[in-house]
Simulated scan of single mutants.
Amino acid sequence: MLKKYSFPIIIALISTLIFCFSPGLSEHIRPKSPLVQHFVEAKVTRMVSQELSPDPHVPSVITGRQIFFAKILEGAEKGKEVRITNPLSRQHNVYVQAGDHFIMMIRLKKDGQPYYWAFNHKRSPAIYAMLTIFLLLLLSFGKKEGLNSVVSLYFTAALITGVLIPAIFAGWNPVLLTIVLMGLKIVVNYILVCGYNHKSFCAMIGTLLGVIAAGAFSQIFGEMAHLSGIYLDKGEDIVYLTTAHPVQIRWLMFTAIMISALGAVMDVAISISSSYHELSQADPTLTPAQLRKASMNIGRDIMGTMTNTLILAIAGGSLTTMMMVWGFNMPVIQFINTPLVTMAVVHGLAGSIGIVLTIPLTAWACSALFPVKIREKEII
């Protein structure tokens, strides 16, 4: 039993070690904030006054001002009751009532006195509950494969937050770093999900080449359109997070599209590799050329749905931008040349190109790496 789960256990331990040691090892390269502040959970004990009214444009949003007392529930000032003035607007709308829990920001002012602020609603219970439901469903229906999927997600999170982001802030080249880390992620994921065999090895090759193609097209055509990582969400803010090694923000488009397209490209690659494998098992007399052609025919059916999946995901994230375009009745020459729209289009098309190229790349890898004697004997 232990041997059966040895690889997932090893990957889970490596991921845990990354999460444990990365903060300490990367602390010296973390951008330093001039603000002295920390966040704690607090509870509203009693209301002092409220001047509230519905927003005239969004009646469901309450605006105005609240004054209340809150008890700090954790940290050095645990148990302390403080008075808070809470202005409510559309953008900052932490409307609370007596007994509510919220996240309080405590910031030291220039004179050394603390300033207390109702920073946000406590949203973590909803996130943890949803995550628990997701994990239970994954483990209930997937069993061992579900467990391996959880370990794979855990490993991905460790690579991105514990290695990729600190290394980018350390001044490393995002392109080479992303290729290496995503390559490692691809290998581990396929071994966990599919095992170590010709099917997974071909899918690894197709996936890596596909996401590199997506990243390359994103970078090349992004620069042709005079875009760079600075136009990514919060890209300009990253520029001001100064460290001893400036972030190479020019190459962040490559990194962003490789990460965002990876899931869809992996689905396509393993579908092509599995199709090739199953066809070879069903009829061992088929030649590599025939198997390759059949796999690519299957890939054409997959292509339409997967490109739609990627484009629709990007469109969903850009919904409010599209609403603004429609609402202001912008002419094509205006909206197609705005950075946000151009960035979304380049990302969507680059990811779709990566998906399309993954199909022939994986099929060719299968035809080269599935010898006839292996095809006749290998089983899943």
Rank of each mutant, 00 (worst) to 15 (best):
Q97K: 06
E74G: 07
V61Y: 06
A70D: 08
R83H: 12
I84P: 03
L108I: 15
L88N: 15
I62H: 03
K78C: 08
T63H: 03
Q91K: 14
D100W: 01
P87M: 12
K109S: 08
K80R: 08
K80N: 14
K109N: 13
V94L: 00
V61A: 08
G112A: 09
Y95P: 02
A70R: 00
M104I: 07
E77L: 12
P87I: 09
R65N: 12
F68Q: 00
G99E: 04
G75K: 06
I67Y: 06
S60I: 02
M104C: 10
T63L: 02
T63M: 13
G99Y: 06
E81L: 00
R83N: 11
H92E: 06
E77Y: 11
Q91L: 11
R83F: 05
I72T: 01
I67T: 13
V94F: 08
Q113M: 10
S60V: 08
E77W: 05
I84C: 08
L88M: 11
I106M: 03
E74L: 02
L88F: 10
I62A: 09
E81M: 00
A98I: 02
G64F: 00
V94G: 01
A76Q: 13
V82H: 02
K109L: 12
D100P: 02
I62P: 03
H92V: 06
I106Q: 00
H57T: 14
V96K: 00
I103M: 13
E74Q: 09
I62Y: 09
M104S: 07
T85S: 15
Q66G: 04
M105V: 14
I103F: 06
I84H: 09
E74Y: 05
Q66S: 01
K110Q: 13
R107L: 12
L88I: 11
D100E: 06
H57R: 14
T85D: 14
Q91E: 15
M105C: 07
K110G: 09
E74R: 01
I103R: 15
T63F: 01
Q113Y: 12
Q66K: 00
A76W: 10
L108W: 14
S89A: 10
I72K: 00
N86Q: 15
P87N: 06
N86F: 05
M104F: 04
Q91M: 11
F102A: 06
I67V: 11
R65C: 08
R65S: 15
D100M: 03
V58N: 11
Q97W: 03
E81T: 03
G99F: 01
K71F: 04
I84E: 10
K109Y: 05
T85I: 05
F102P: 06
L73Q: 06
S89R: 07
L88T: 13
L108H: 12
V61I: 07
M105D: 01
L88Y: 10
G75P: 07
Q113N: 07
L73E: 07
S89V: 14
K80L: 09
K78W: 06
G64H: 04
I62T: 13
L108Y: 13
T63I: 14
